[in-house]
């Protein structure tokens, strides 16, 4: 059965801006899917409509057998625990320490009061330290997040998502603010999470070459519509279709990769 099923999803901002138009696709358990497209294509909107950080105007999202649009406030919180989210700007509480930020991923499982006073169980802390070690952040555990490098911050973001024990990760341009070497580290971690832990990944990416290298499947979005959905071996024509006239140098990149 499909883990995620999106049917005829549309999102309209204001009166005339159609950010998403009749988007339909499904994602199987364990798949690593890259969503690519020029900026303004609607990638972020699409991702946020899935966990209802943005309410869609029309259409349906079924995640793990549950219709998202039908959920009431509390049910939605329960459902969101199963979906980890990674952001371009990391979205950490930067004045708090690494461990505090990682444990934030457990808030959805706690009573309001326990969450307010940061009362976490022994096993939760143990799991936090294990995940932190897995992501190579052991030395930074008690550092404040505003003292970390971009790559380290993003790893904290991943740790916070992982401790939710999610079934799926939604990653919105996770490497757009990072240099190439940190980008590679982050993409390797995400790929590993998908392969080793079997967590489904839906990753918005700007860079075609990265998407082709890491993803099992590519969804190309342009002007709010899916224009490509298939395996990660795109022809230059297909890249052009996704990126439109802005694709000049990108096509060259892809061409180079195919040659090598």
């Amino acid at each position: 059965m499909n883990l995620l099923e999106v049917t005829n999803l549309s999102k309209q901002y204001g009166h005339d801006l159609l950010a998403l138009q009749n988007i339909s696709f499904s994602v199987q358990n364990g798949e690593f899917v890259a969503v690519i497209g020029p900026s303004g294509a609607g990638k972020s909107t699409l991702l946020r409509c899935i966990n209802r950080m943005i309410d869609p105007t029309d259409g349906e999202v079924v995640f793990d057998g549950v219709q998202m649009s039908k959920l009431k406030k509390n049910e939605l919180r329960m459902q969101r625990r199963k979906i980890g989210m990674i952001f371009q700007h990391y979205n950490l509480v930067s004045r708090l320490t690494v461990i505090e930020n990682v444990l934030h991923g457990r808030l959805g499982y706690k009573s309001t009061f326990a969450g307010i006073v940061s009362h976490y169980g022994k096993d939760e802390k143990k799991q936090a330290f294990e995940i932190i070690e897995m992501l190579g952040l052991t030395e930074q555990v008690y550092k404040r997040c505003d003292q970390l490098s971009g790559g380290q911050k993003q790893r904290v973001g991943i740790a916070r998502a992982l401790i939710q024990n999610p079934r799926m990760m939604l990653c919105d341009e996770p490497i757009a603010s990072l240099d190439p070497s940190a980008s590679k580290v982050i993409m390797d971690y995400l790929r590993n999470i998908s392969t080793k832990l079997g967590i489904t990944c839906l990753v918005n990416l700007h860079q075609v070459d990265v998407a082709l290298n890491y993803a099992d499947r590519i969804i190309g979005v342009n002007k709010g519509k899916i224009v490509y959905d298939g395996p990660p071996n795109l022809t230059p024509e297909e890249v052009y279709m996704i990126y439109g006239s802005a694709a000049g140098d990108l096509i060259f990149d892809v061409g180079g990769q195919h040659a090598s």
Binding site: N51, M53, R77, M78, Q79, R80, R81, I83, G84, M85, F87, H89, Y90, N91, L92, V93, S94, R95, L96, H104, G105, L107, G108, Y109, K110, T112, G115, I116, S118, G157, R160, A161, Q164, L170
Partner: peptide, 25 residues
């Protein structure tokens, strides 16, 4: 707003978000 968005996405409640993200920042 960044931290708040992340905690909302993780399923935190309103008051958890106030105390864990808004007040510290």
């Amino acid at each position: 707003s960044d931290g708040v968005e992340a905690l909302q996405a993780a399923g935190a409640t309103y008051f958890q978000i106030i105390f864990q993200a808004v007040i510290p920042t």
